[in-house]
């Protein structure tokens, strides 16, 4: 495996990129302060990132923020979708993250069980 293989991806993916040019349909932001990291935020971010890779969700972007959340509800994840309320999920872990990917991101139904705020 060699980094040069990225050039193949570059040719294949150019089309999606034009589509995505406007803006991602959904933005997922994972809180990465010290207490977030200590309670497993990296595994949560990793789960979102890998699910998006695996399911080839070209219109979803996952990023991190250093902002502090509610220490007692960490790891926290915010999901931004155009024209919809922002959903804040708390006490996330890899299993919960997979469920949010399937139910919320793919099927459009926020997982109210894990939501701590809808703004």
């Amino acid at each position: 495996m060699n980094l040069e293989e990225l050039k193949k991806i570059r040719e294949k993916a150019q089309k999606d990129v034009e589509l995505r040019q406007k803006q991602a349909r959904i933005r997922v932001v994972v809180g990465m302060g010290t207490s977030g990291i200590a309670s497993g935020a990296r595994e949560v971010l990793k789960t979102f990132v890998e699910e998006i890779g695996r399911r080839n969700l070209t219109d979803v972007v996952v990023t991190q923020t250093g902002e502090k959340g509610l220490a007692s509800r960490e790891p926290m994840v915010e999901v931004f979708e155009e024209g919809k309320p922002v959903v804040v999920y708390g006490s996330m872990d890899p299993e919960r993250s997979k469920r949010v990917v399937v139910e919320h991101i793919v099927n459009g139904n926020p997982v109210s069980e894990y939501a701590i705020e809808v703004m």
Partner: peptide, 18 residues
Amino acid sequence: LLGGVPINHPEVISFLSK
């Protein structure tokens, strides 16, 4: 190497992971 393809494109994520 990716030109205009973003590093967070799903195919790139899968590639980097492997």
